[in-house]
């Protein structure tokens, strides 16, 4: 039996849609057929990652231009979660984004978004795609033997 779900949704480049997309991601996690981990925790993590990735695309890649759009693709199977957020802007250099916000940087008001995404996902890649860019984030949903949720 095939247990994979694919969803594609286009939203205007506006933060009012963060809640909608976050909740869709949460619902997909809660509906996973075969997942032995902490489902609520996974749902919350997906909401967080989607929100951070969208804000990054809206404000930085698409320069907060409300006439632009963002395409979100979510693929979820028993094995893996893949989230792709496509922007149509000038993009940014993933390597120049501030890293972990510890020590003297802990009181910076900005710069936590990509750190949070990197902490919750296994791989994060930003590359050219479809005339714009895509932030591609993947996470294995197969838990190590004996482990229940991480």
């Amino acid at each position: 039996m095939k247990n994979s779900v694919a969803l594609e949704i286009t939203i205007p480049n506006q933060t009012r849609y963060l809640s909608l997309i976050g909740k869709i991601g949460e619902n997909m996690a809660q509906g996973l057929a075969n997942y032995n981990g902490d489902r609520e925790r996974l749902a919350s993590q997906i909401n967080t990652v989607l929100t951070e990735a969208l804000v990054n695309a809206i404000r930085h890649a698409n320069s907060a231009d409300p006439s632009k759009e963002i395409l979100v693709r979510i693929n979820m199977s028993d094995k893996e979660l893949a989230i792709r957020v496509f922007d149509s802007g000038k993009g940014f250099d993933l390597n120049n984004v501030p890293g972990p916000c510890f020590n003297q940087d802990i009181l910076d008001e900005k710069g936590r978004g990509l750190f949070i995404i990197r902490s919750l996902m296994d791989s994060v890649v930003y590359k050219k795609a479809n005339g714009g860019n895509v932030l591609e984030m993947k996470k294995s949903l197969r838990l190590p033997r004996g482990k229940h949720g991480s």
Binding site: L18, G22, S44, N47, T48, T51, E52, V55, L107, D108, E109, K110, R112, G113, I116
Partner: peptide, 16 residues
């Protein structure tokens, strides 16, 4: 029930 990095940033701003 949900906070993102922008929400955290506002609290940090208040703290400072």
């Amino acid at each position: 029930l949900f906070i993102d990095s922008s929400g955290l940033g506002v609290l940090v701003s208040g703290y400072k």
